[in-house]
Design a protein around this nucleic acid. Sequence first.
DNA 1: ATTCTTTTGTAACATATGTTACCAATGATT
DNA 2: AATCATTGGTAACATATGTTACAAAAGAAT
Lengths: 210, 210
Amino acid sequence: MEELFYKTYGGIFEEELLEEIIQVSKAIDFKEGDVLIDYNQYIKMMPLLLSGAVKVMREDYDSGELLLYYLERGDTCAMSMTCCLGEKQSEIRAIGEVPGVILMIPVQKMSEWIGKYKSWMSFVFESYNNRFNELLNAVDTIAFMDMNDRLLNYLFEKSKIENNTIVYKTHQDIAKELNTSRVVVSRLLKALETEGRIKLNRNSIEILVK
Amino acid sequence: MEELFYKTYGGIFEEELLEEIIQVSKAIDFKEGDVLIDYNQYIKMMPLLLSGAVKVMREDYDSGELLLYYLERGDTCAMSMTCCLGEKQSEIRAIGEVPGVILMIPVQKMSEWIGKYKSWMSFVFESYNNRFNELLNAVDTIAFMDMNDRLLNYLFEKSKIENNTIVYKTHQDIAKELNTSRVVVSRLLKALETEGRIKLNRNSIEILVK
DNA sequence: ATTCTTTTGTAACATATGTTACCAATGATT
DNA sequence: AATCATTGGTAACATATGTTACAAAAGAAT
């Protein structure tokens, strides 16, 4: 676990900060489906992702839901920083997607380090920036792509974070994350299979050609 | 102009910082349609909005465009901060919507002040946070609302920044900002007029009921 | 007055997406 | 083996949105 930490952050934080992080942080294992952050929740910890993947979702006031982006090794959650710094409630939901480990940093340390360590401040800004760009990316996807392309995009992204050409999701799961209906997903997937781009199985989809 | 500056930022920055800003910044007037920031542009100044309104747009790789949100008095552009801090290119376009004045802060000062003034650092984080939430809002709009509601939402927003129940836009203008077609906008507007919610005129739309 | 351009209205149609309903296949449970 | 729940396939239809085409109205330019 500690070697994973050094492998991930050793290059960007100074030695002193690395030690402080080890001292004050708490490592937490998460599984698929674990709700790490939920809507309207106050957050007192800032999470650093060491392994696995976390999906960040946005919910409509009535029923709708949508996948915004995934967090991976080395990432952190912009919403958490916001909440930590400003005593605000979360606007998003973060759910474990690929099991892994997060380091939880207490909120006081998070803000204390901003003044103390240049590398930490850079990291915080860089993270904000990355999340902002990922959100822009999500906007592009829903604003400019049709459902077929969004579906393909989803399969590629999911395949990437799992590091596997087989995506283990039901049509219903996918429909939820794309905020559409199961029938639509089945229809489009079947067409993609006919084109020879994927192979459908129960509970999984194999990606044949990018 | 200076009194406008103090009215806007006097409450949040310490005296010393206020003076520094006055010294190093350059005030720039902008008109409607002025392109303040464009795609792929490197930014060497951070803008503080003193008056007027700026619209922030996102462009598709081929032709499509979409209004993300407006910036108003006291706001700044998250993309600029990103670019200033990280030598990155802009992912958005910022265009004058309501004529006004911006203060341009040189990039070195922008980052120097982060270590020097607590209030500046808070402002920068707060701004990042606000822009992030506005982007989330834009996601909600395009992901969960139908075109009719997006159109109404657009009219209300535009009316708010203009502080006028009459919105001076052609159907074509609106279509572009919502990334749809003129015919669709005309159709929906006509229906809203029939419902008695708006009144249509050439080159303008009057909002009757919220 | 005539011509031209911009703006808006509208019809008719194409397409993408959402909905409902039903069935078949699969795998789990009893 | 019988039953049940989950998953996926498909038809048929409803609706929202996009497209093309054309005309009328308003205003600008000559």
